[in-house]
């Protein structure tokens, strides 16, 4: 005897209103990052430590700019999902736990967007 409606049973979502979505998006972002990693980190390692003018001219190149912006968005999405699980596993005090989960969700959104926007700014204006 189940308390689920037939439609809810077919969709496979319990009271959490989420099924494998978290698990699946973490894997998708992981695959994206693994594929993008060499294309992001080799130019990044070359650019790191160079003067501003050279760094800016490197990231004006569309390939570097697009890869870097995508990488930043994927990194902060993956980071949000990972840190969420770590917080859920180890932080048990309800107020602190909820506060940290909100901070991580909003903080990663802010940083991911700001980094991607900055790369676009470098490519278009600076």
């Amino acid at each position: 005897m189940t308390m689920l409606t037939p439609r809810a049973r077919v969709r496979g979502l319990g009271s959490a209103k989420g099924g494998t979505e978290h698990w699946w998006t973490q894997r998708l972002s992981a695959i994206s990052l693994a594929v993008l990693a060499p294309f992001f980190f080799i130019p990044f390692a070359i650019a790191l430590g160079k003067p501003w003018v050279e760094v800016v001219s490197m990231y004006k190149h569309p390939f570097n700019a697009i890869v870097a912006a995508l990488f930043m968005l994927a990194v902060f999405h993956h980071m949000r999902l990972g840190l969420q699980v770590v917080i859920e596993d180890y932080i048990h005090a309800p107020a602190l736990r909820t506060g940290l989960l909100i901070a991580v969700k909003l903080g990663t959104l802010l940083l991911g967007f700001a980094a991607a926007f900055s790369i676009a700014m470098i490519a278009f204006t600076v």
């Binding site: 760094v55 930043m72 980071m79 990972g82 840190l83 790369i119």
Partner: peptide
Amino acid sequence: TGVGNSIGAVLVAWWFIAAATGEGAFD
């Protein structure tokens, strides 16, 4: 290492945001 990489990611984001802000912030 996942948690450690999060700190690194913040530094990388800071680096890009600073580069877009200007030479002083980047330096």
